[in-house]
Design a binder for these strands. Structure first.
Lengths: 230, 230
DNA sequence: ACGGGTTGTAAAAAACTCGTAAACACAGCC
DNA sequence: GGCTGTGTTTACGAGTTTTTTACAACCCGT
């Protein structure tokens, strides 16, 4: 059923707000607007959104704080908008639970592509999977049994390898920062030991990618972290 | 026993039919072909199949109807093939009792992965969880009498040994973590004493396995725990 | 094209896991 | 007491996994 899909757009700059609204409406989405964090949270109470697009730099309550608060009560996908060169903002937002980011200025095509990508990943309906399993093309992961299958063949993983794969696979498409992955897999005390990650990402790729020098599933987001796609 | 596993492939497009047939035969399956729903049902009468792969869009009798009719008489796993974007078809097919779907075009790896996954799940489902007695190749366990027989000879087990064996045997194939086994057999207060487990798994193997250094029934999942297979 | 930082890979070193043997403890029983 | 059956504890070698180190490959801005 083509139900109405609401997207919440939060930005203090009127022209960006209108640009995004206009673009999304052309693609059959319904759009609600807010100009700061407080308004965003208020809107969020009112309506059920399929996606939130959130500017980081805003007066009143900034995007980072809004992102954190939304995440406390919802798993709705969040795309943050950052200014060019504000790496730290991106990373902070991703650490607060944002799913993806867009760097201003962005083109119509880029906006639409990201929105659709995020929604596709989040769409729960389109994967018929038995409970506790996920599929990425020819890879199948059984979280309960801690087993992974590639082209129907079982591949064995060490505890650390599986832990890392699991973090990535539980939110396909979501970009994880180095720090987040290190904290979740190795614990807070190793959140700065990025070399662990390099070594283990390499091992995962050698096990699940067809050609580990041209990965299709485990992708690098330079300067930020890693993410998994189908 | 490497019994012959027949798969029925139903599609009106010759090249897809041959592609699937060829791929599956390379993976040691026997393949029978049909080009429409009527032929499929006719073949289905003749041979016992372990799996049916069924195109949705076909002339004569479409896949959906064929799926429904097969389901009336059999629980054989069914994978349906759908064209890209035909969401409605997928959902309808899953509602008619299909087990999984593949969207055309698909890669070799993905086809094989789905076939194996569906077969794996099917074989898992028919494992009898009976509480009475259970058989693992040459080993027979009577849970009521707390007795075990190997090649018809009674083997004696101490209470702890039998308790551990029983935990594993009640869910064959399921991987139990060290902690779970320790908690269930020795109690929560010993859930960290992994050395008990090492010693007792060794004792079980010496009693049950033909060659305890190459166990066939009681298997180790490194870093995680143990499980029992037939 | 250069230099500085990041990312990927290989390999050595350190730490840990698993299976096994053997010793010990402790009861019940003769 | 000595014997037997069971559970607990310790120790060690082989093998695996994790950590550490080093360096090559790559990207990006100047």
């Amino acid at each position: 059923m083509p139900q109405e899909k609401y997207i919440l757009v939060v930005d203090d700059e009127p022209n960006i707000r209108e640009f995004v609204k206009h673009t999304l409406e052309k693609h059959a989405f319904k759009v609600k607007l807010a100009t700061n964090g407080w308004e965003a949270l208020a809107e969020f109470e009112q309506t059920t959104f399929v996606l939130v697009i959130l500017d980081i730099m805003m007066p009143q309550m900034n995007g980072l704080e809004a992102c954190r608060r939304i995440r406390q009560t919802s798993i709705v996908p969040i795309i943050v908008l950052t200014a060019l060169g504000e790496e730290a903002d991106k990373i902070a937002a991703l650490n607060q639970g944002a799913d993806d980011y867009l760097t201003k200025p962005f083109a119509v095509g880029e906006l639409v592509a990201r929105v659709q990508a995020v929604l596709r990943r989040a769409s729960w309906a389109d994967t018929p999977r038995s409970v506790g399993t996920q599929r990425f093309g020819n890879i199948e992961i059984d979280f309960e049994q801690r087993q992974v299958w590639r082209d129907g063949e079982r591949i064995k993983f060490t505890p650390t390898e599986f832990g890392l794969l699991q973090e990535l696979a539980l939110h396909p498409g979501k970009i994880f920062t180095h720090e987040t992955l290190l904290r979740r897999v190795w614990g807070t005390e190793h959140s700065r030991d990025a070399e662990y990650l390099r070594v283990y990402i390499g091992r995962l790729r050698r096990k699940i990618e067809v050609d580990s020098s041209k990965p299709l599933h485990i992708l690098t987001e330079p300067g930020i972290g890693y993410y998994l796609v189908k």
